[in-house]
Design a binder for these strands. Structure first.
Lengths: 238, 238
DNA sequence: CGCTCTCTTGATAGACTTCAATGTTAGTGG
DNA sequence: CCACTAACATTGAAGTCTATCAAGAGAGCG
């Protein structure tokens, strides 16, 4: 049951240690916690930065046509909208895919802390960097891969991210996305996602039942996806 | 003829003023300048951060299949790979679309300056934020728009960015992209880009000759693209 | 003048979407 | 425990958008 401040500390200090005073300053930030149900908009509390303590959240835009494009998926420990520290909310809406625990921290307090603490500022930069690296990979995925490779790539990415949380390769992956969600994340129709998933099953790369995915042949799935398992996992410069 | 340090200062202080000592620290950073020809890889000088002083640069990835996806386009005054400050190069390659003047600054020196100067750190965060905001818009564009709207959207984005540099709406826009480049940026084939551009011409939204685009009906183009003219231009939180 | 790169055009094929119906599952209340 | 509902998954058929292939036309350049 990690608290908001635990998650914040971990997100900002991963692979890079903060000074003790920076850690205590983070721990001292006042925070609030929020439980939200599945499929709810994460409330845009003015000037608050939100953290995903537990659960899944997606960030998306709705087009004039009414279609939805999911731009990012976030799991336990993620801080989806770090950009709010610097610029006002950017037209992206966040919605829960599962029941969630959400942590809230004052953006102004975080800005103030960034100003005083180089380590925290560095952590924020690293988070912003990872977010844009993932976004670029999505651009490549959606822009240039066939449907089957595209869906495989998304699953590889999510699997690797879940492994990073759990610490090891899993037998099964709980990915609470409907086929419509997968379509909205990959730029495909739900019907086609269904067909592609069946093809992945036929190829014996993947099994799925009740929101759980079983990766049957990890290496072949990675190969099919053209997935680079390192891409989320590069050592920081400093 | 802006220098590397000019561009750096402008990129980091836009809409947010740095303290005099921060400005002088930036001005005092030692920099190098580099002239590169069209269609050349921007050399990945170990540990150097590069700035586009003049010209156009694209960041892209090549898939196993040999296809290319352009993930970002950069013009005068942009700092494409700010991420290098925090993480090592991320598989993205940068290539010039025109003859370019490139500025180089030591990433380690910038990191050191970020550590000492909250204003500089804030400027870096703002740049990282803008980069990921654009990337998200590209995801939406590529994922959910039809070819014609997609190309229109790219042109709107580039037009707005060029306007920001020039300071006003232009009669013509020099966009040195081949139709193949536009295809690689939008996830389309060059042949289809050609047909789409002709359709935009037929609709009398756009004219193009010799690498120059003339936007004939700005409002209708924006409408067709579903473009939000504000999206690059939100006021900073602070 | 020939070379290369880019743009253009037509024909054909294929990937993916849309529409519509049916099956499946889990949850709810009687 | 069963009927009822709603959400999601699955299937088929038809249609559309976009890719691919191939060839020719212009334009710039040595």
């Amino acid at each position: 049951m990690p608290t908001t401040n635990d998650v914040l500390l971990r997100a900002l200090s991963a692979r890079y240690s903060l000074e003790p005073w920076e850690q205590s300053a983070l721990a001292a930030l006042s925070s609030r916690e929020l439980a939200i149900r599945r499929d709810a908009v994460v409330p845009d509390e003015g000037g608050m930065l939100f953290l995903v303590l537990e659960g899944w959240v997606c960030g998306y835009k709705i087009l004039n046509s009414g279609e939805r494009q999911i731009c990012a998926l976030h799991v336990d420990g993620d801080i989806p909208d770090f950009r709010r520290l610097v610029l006002p909310p950017a037209g992206l809406e966040y919605r829960s895919l599962t029941v969630c625990r959400i942590g809230l921290i004052s953006a102004a307090a975080m800005r103030e802390l960034c100003r005083k603490s180089p380590g925290v500022a560095h952590g924020v930069m690293r988070n912003l960097t990872v977010i844009s690296t993932i976004a670029e990979e999505w651009i490549v995925n959606i822009g240039r891969r066939r449907a089957i490779n595209r869906v495989a790539h998304l699953i590889c990415e999510l699997a690797v991210r879940l492994e990073a949380i759990k610490g090891s390769i899993q037998a099964r992956y709980v990915i609470p996305l409907t086929q419509t969600d997968i379509g909205d994340a990959t730029g495909l129709s739900a019907v086609h996602v269904n067909r592609v998933l069946q093809e992945l099953r036929t190829k014996r790369l993947l099994e799925f039942r009740g929101g759980q995915f079983f990766i049957l042949d990890r290496q072949r799935l990675i190969d099919l996806a053209g997935f680079d398992p390192e891409y989320l996992d590069r050592a920081p410069s400093q």
